[in-house]
Design a binder for these strands. Structure first.
Lengths: 226, 226
DNA sequence: AAGGGTTTGTTGCCATAGCTACAAACGCCT
DNA sequence: AGGCGTTTGTAGCTATGGCAACAAACCCTT
């Protein structure tokens, strides 16, 4: 059954066999809820007791700011989860709202049952995965703010490209995001960013075409990125 | 024994009774290690298998950046812990170094034992505390970057003060940090920040003396903070 | 291939905030 | 009370980057 495929894509069930997941589900008493397009799946500020894993459809995530403005915070696709942080807080208040952008099915995992699980052979594995998920999230957010802390435009751009180079090992990096998204991620204005990128191209440091960037002067780039 | 007092201060042992902690320790096989002033307690980039809880003395935390420069990241006091995130990562590599600023004693909790713990009555409580610690950290980092994302100086300052007001409910807020620390937190230069604070004082929005700030015009402040 | 919507490149102007430098106030310590 | 180190206030200059506006290229769709 294809639900299994999606569940296995989820980080919480990494290293689980199909059979194990089935057994686990009986223990956890997970339930599947269907939402039709436009329905609110979770409302900011309400309490949640379960981790939600999206099985089908898409959800849009957004927050309502104190002045009433809505801020989009991206889209959830099959296998993604929500509430996985908040459910472990004391107040259990979810910090964003999720709305079904198309008909969707959500698998809910009651954390209470996870914590109360007996000494099953899978309990440890599941627990490790949950802990790893949270720990990785902390590292990821920390990584994001590395860019926010940088003050100069050139430094931000260089670090983004250089980090991608370190990650891939090639001089021909691909960012996978467009200029707008890149500017948003670095928290700068797109024209200013483009301007600086062009300067760097003029100086022979990089070359670019869409989201594909060629590093021409790695030494200089590294120097700026540091 | 006073070690118990410090351990109870630690977030992981919230809601634990003295007796419970003692039992727990026998199960967990925690060990206490002493470090003398100047010794490296944990080195950036090395693997750790245990959460460290500082029992006495102080540790300084710092990271070595790619260009070799050291960046101080604050001080750990009794009851604080380290490695509590990294120990749950796959690679288990600790991202900062910790050095004893004075003679120190550290209690190590092997996470392997925590995960392998049998169905003791305390397992669930400990697990909940660990999960809550990580979840709270995620929320806290997210909160920090709210300030980093803001572009205007005035907006940053106003939000910091306004948030503190929401937190305390009073118009006479106390930040608990000096100008340098405040500027560093907001990721701006101190003189520029002071300049803007003075402007806001001239406009009758706030008044301040050291880290004590009086809100004179809450309406205007809220407006700016949004 | 035409056309409309989106993404990217490009420019100029200007407000903002960084930086250096110094003055003033404060807080300890003896 | 004097003095030294630290924190805070203040000013001027300048580089930086935001923003609006537009041009060019691109990409679908029909």
């Amino acid at each position: 059954m294809k639900i299994l495929r999606l569940i296995k894509k989820n980080r919480l069930f990494e290293n689980f066999e199909d059979k194990e997941i089935n057994v686990l589900f009986d223990n956890l008493k997970g339930r599947i809820v269907k939402f039709s397009r436009g329905m609110i799946v979770a409302a900011q500020g309400t309490q949640i007791e379960e981790i939600g894993i999206l099985l089908s459809g898409t959800l849009v995530k957004f927050i309502v700011k104190s002045d009433g403005a809505r801020e989009a915070q991206g889209t959830l696709l099959g296998g993604d989860m929500f509430g996985d942080t908040e459910v472990f807080l004391k107040d259990k208040l979810i910090r964003a709202s999720y709305v079904a952008a198309e008909d969707a099915a959500v698998l809910y995992l009651p954390t209470e049952h996870i914590l109360n699980m007996g000494d099953s052979p899978y309990r440890k594995k599941l627990m490790e995965n949950i802990l790893a998920t949270l720990a990785e999230k902390i590292i990821a957010i920390g990584k994001d703010s590395e860019y926010l802390i940088i003050k100069s435009m050139r430094h931000k751009i260089a670090k983004l490209i250089y980090d991608k180079h370190l990650e891939t090992g090639v001089l021909n990096v691909e960012l996978g995001i467009n200029r707008n998204e890149m500017a948003e991620y670095l928290n700068v204005s797109r024209p200013s960013m483009s301007r600086e990128m062009m300067r760097m191209r003029d100086e022979g440091i990089i070359d670019f075409w869409k989201d594909k960037i060629t590093i021409n002067d790695l030494v200089k780039l590294r120097e700026i990125a540091k």
